[in-house]
Structures are given as C-alpha cells and as structure tokens.
Write a protein that binds this DNA or RNA. Sequence first.
DNA 1: TTAAACTTTCAGTAATTATTGAAAGTTTAA
DNA 2: TTAAACTTTCAATAATTACTGAAAGTTTAA
Lengths: 167, 167
Amino acid sequence: MNYTEAKDKFISTWGALGTLWGINKAMAQIHALLWISPEPLSMEDIMEELHISRGNTSMNLRQLMDWGIVFKESKPGERKEYFVSEKDVQELARQVAKERSRREIKPVIKVLREVSGIEGDGTKKTEELIKQTKALYELADNADTMMNKIVNQESNWITKTLMKLIK
Amino acid sequence: MNYTEAKDKFISTWGALGTLWGINKAMAQIHALLWISPEPLSMEDIMEELHISRGNTSMNLRQLMDWGIVFKESKPGERKEYFVSEKDVQELARQVAKERSRREIKPVIKVLREVSGIEGDGTKKTEELIKQTKALYELADNADTMMNKIVNQESNWITKTLMKLIK
DNA sequence: TTAAACTTTCAGTAATTATTGAAAGTTTAA
DNA sequence: TTAAACTTTCAATAATTACTGAAAGTTTAA
C-alpha cells in the first residue's frame, strides 16, 4: 500500500465510521484529511481533494470548529483562510467527549431524572418505569461524570487510566 | 407528570438519542418500550403503542435480538410470540459495548493498523500520515481493550470501576 | 394434510438528511 | 469608496435511510 492508497483508505474509513456514529460523512472526511495533513489546507484544497462543493465544505468546517477540533489559520499576506485540525489525539478525544456530553448526554440525563422522579401510584407499570429509568439514569450519570473527569485532567490521563484498567 | 406523560417522554427521548448515535428511531423506541414494560409484549402491542407498521416492527425486533438485548418469549398455549428486553442495565451496557466493538471498532482498528503500518518514503506527508494514524490506532485499541474488559467481567464491574475513577 | 394464526420479506414510497451552486455577504488592498 | 477575492447562506435537489403493507413464508392444532 502506497501513500495515496493509505490516505484514501483512511479518509473513507473515517467517513464510514462517522456515519455509523451519527456524524455526517463530509464532516468526518474533512477531519480525516486535516488530521493527516502536515500543512494547513484552504477551502479549495479540501474541495478538490474530497470532491465536494464549496457550500458543503464551508458548513462542515464550521461544524468542526464548533466542536473545537479544527481551527482557522491565516497566512500573513494572504487573503485566503487556511484550516488545521487539532493534532493531539488526547485533546481530540477530550474535545469529542466533552461536546457529546454537553449536546447529547446531559439533556438525556435531565429527562431520565425527571421521568424516574415521578410519584409512584402503586401500579406495577409505574413501578417498573421508575425502576428502569432510574437504573438508566445512574448508568448515564456515572458515565458522564467519568467523561468530565477525562475532560478536565492533564492530557495523558486517558492513557494512564486505560493502562491501569487493562492491567 | 403522570405515568403516560412520563412514558411518552422517555420513549421519545430514547428514540431521539438513538438517532443521534446512528440507531434508528423505531429500534430505539421499541427498546425503550420493552425496557419499561413489566410484561412481555406482542407485535400487536408494540405496533399499537408506537404507531408503526408490522414490517417495521418485525425488522427492528430482529435487529434488537441480533444485538442481544431483546428476546423472544412464548406463552404456553398461545401461538403468538412475545418479546422482552434485557432488564439489567449492566448487561445492557455490556451487550451494547460488545456489539459496537465487534461491528464498528474492530474493523476500524484493523484499517488503522494497516494504514499506519505502511513504509515511510521520507516525505513529510507520509511521515504525518503514519504518525497520526498510529496515534489514533493506539487510542482506539486501548479503548477497545477496555470495552472487552467490561464485557468479560462480572456484572457490576462497570460501577465499581467508575467509582474508583470518580473518587 | 389443511387451514388458521401468525411472522417475515421486500418492492414501492415516504421522510429525512446531505449536497449543490449561485446569490448575498464580508473583508481587505489600493 | 470600490472592486476583487474570498466565505457564508439557503432554496432547490439529490442521495440516503426508514417505513409501509401486502404477498410469501412458517408454524401448529386439529
């Protein structure tokens, strides 16, 4: 496998993984491209490499920036804007964990707390609803707390922790 | 909030979360419904409660069974089949982790190993590709190993581990 | 066996989500 | 200011994904 084959394989695999996890293909592929690029890339560069339109590129770059894993960069004397990805894998993991927690997990935890907190009325179905949503609430809340730990620790905490667990 | 409101809120929230994580709404909602149901439900019951078609119900029940989190149950003397969900939250988490690892993470790890294993040719871009995909490979491989740990431990391992980490 | 009771499959259709491309908007050099 | 160089927005459209419903398939009781 030569450079081009490896690059294409990585980009398309990353895109497919994204899709599986609810992230759109273009967004994941732009990230993949920037992740392995030693130089900042312009919108033109990205459009050309991935064969996607200007609008699509622009919208997905914005999303990646909203996620905090891609940044704008300007080269002195040039009008064009360039983009670079976060290059540290730990920081990438932290940022993704943090954003998914904030956008998706926290709101669900809130609902689970509300639902599991309703008053029992003595019926079996209400008891079951309370019991089962409470169990889910506790699981989600624990997982989320762990994520926040990860987010707020020094950068190689993940690896250290994983190592501890694996041993 | 009364029983019906709480139930509906839980089911629709669970469906929305599923969608966000690449799981279709009907599948997530059927799971939610079974999760809080004290009794096994028939296909009719599910169709009626969620207002979905027979075909849709059948296909998504199959998927839930493939994931190992919903089971068929027959009542003696009845022709109809009933369905129950795994009720233990630890077992649910284990099963979901196991399946996502097998279906999605493992294949990606394989590609990352292949891509990061290509031979360097002295160019900067090849060096960067190797370096960055190797970092991702290590992260994914660690995370997956942890998942497998979870899958193969006694049922309350997750909670214990999380507790250790949180303290 | 037969046929009733049930489940699965799948072609067609609907709903959702992603993408395009051109117009509108913004920035900057002169 | 102006206009060139660039980016963003968004209505239209394409692509993907989910859903329906009826036909085909399966199981079981008699």
